[in-house]
């Protein structure tokens, strides 16, 4: 354990403001089952929305309804055939998500005592509005690659926020006291976790730019090994040094599992879309399934990286030399 840094049991070192703050964060908010269930439902519905959105792009149905926010000039359900099935169901689910997001933002503001959580609720609302605007612009401006890619990236950002709200309104994260271990390694685990999020975002944007015909496929393929290395480094560091912290361990394992799945799906998407599908007369089923799965797992991977970073921030604070000088390093027990 000593290798990993300074292991601390609670309550400890009365001088450490950080730890005091963390203790308070862990205990201040009472668990609210209904609020949590609603947040989980919103996150799951958002995942369905990402799949619905991926189906639109994979079926090249993005412009099957030429107007927005109306569909063929009205808000009634149009005849659901051809591309309209995908485009309209995406719009319908998105509409419901906006309602869910308004509810979760208001509910969080009223029910949750944690300030960051209240602001996260509002951030979710802001993101979903931006997302709707980008969706509208995609239709009205005939899918410029940058707008469509921004729609893909903001959509996944919204999904991450929904997942964070769902995870951090859960009983486990509200009632258990963070188990703190100081991180003395460089780069620190939090740096690695944040770097993981960064490379995943770059990967998401490169993938989206290819998907929306704004760029070739190779920048995305070239960045894939970078993503693989950074994520593996992060997960292995987390697992080898902090596997005793359940929240960190679980996120790291999930990150690794999703990364491997995503690399396989990426390869599959490449084969079906680029290698075999170049001359396809229409989007074929293997192409649609592999690309939709690749987008969906990409979203899960990004959300897992965000959760891991938050768990690391809560459980594995960085120790600075001045805070824990080398010669005084000693396990502290209560």
């Amino acid at each position: 354990m000593w290798r990993a840094g300074v292991s601390l049991a609670f309550p400890v070192d009365p001088d450490s403001h950080r730890i005091k703050e963390l203790t308070l964060k862990g205990l201040a908010a009472p668990y609210n089952r209904a609020h949590h269930c609603f947040a989980v439902f919103t996150a799951c519905a958002t995942f369905c929305l990402i799949i619905a959105g991926a189906l639109v792009t994979s079926n090249d149905a993005g412009l099957s309804i030429p107007d927005w926010p109306t569909s063929f000039g009205s808000f009634r359900i149009p005849p659901l055939h051809g591309g309209i099935r995908f485009e309209w169901s995406h719009r319908a689910i998105a509409g419901s998500i906006i309602v869910l997001t308004i509810s979760i933002a208001v509910w969080t503001w009223l029910a949750d005592r944690r300030r960051w959580m209240r602001w996260l609720g509002l951030a979710a609302l802001g993101t979903v509005v931006a997302q709707a605007v980008l969706g509208g612009l995609t239709v009205l401006l005939l899918q410029p690659p940058w707008v469509s890619s921004a729609h893909a990236a903001v959509g996944q950002t919204f999904f991450c926020i929904a997942v964070v709200i769902a995870v951090f309104t859960g009983r486990r994260s509200m009632e258990t006291v963070p188990q703190i271990e100081m991180d003395t390694h460089r780069p620190s685990l939090i740096t690695l976790s944040l770097l993981s999020i960064l490379v995943l975002y770059v990967q998401l944007i490169l993938g989206a730019m290819f998907r929306h015909r704004g760029m070739s496929w190779w920048p995305h393929a070239l960045n894939a090994p970078v993503v693989a290395i950074v994520l593996t480094w992060t997960a292995i560091r987390a697992l080898s040094l902090y596997s005793k912290i359940e929240a960190v361990r679980r996120s790291a394992i999930l990150l690794l599992a999703l990364l491997i799945t995503q690399l396989c799906l990426g390869f599959l998407a490449f084969m079906t879309r680029v290698a075999w599908g170049r001359d396809a007369v229409q989007p074929e089923l293997p192409m649609v399934i592999s690309t939709v799965a690749h987008v969906a797992v990409g979203a899960l991977l990004l959300a897992t990286a965000v959760i891991l970073a938050i768990q690391v921030w809560r459980h594995v604070p960085v120790s600075f030399e001045e805070r824990v000088p080398g010669r005084e390093r000693r396990p502290v027990t209560a």
Binding site: N59, D60, A61, G62, L63, S64, H81, G82, G83, I84, E87, V281, Q282, P283
Partner: peptide, 8 residues
């Protein structure tokens, strides 16, 4: 020219 209803 394409049709987004009928991608073929």
């Amino acid at each position: 020219v394409k049709c987004n209803q009928h991608p073929w």
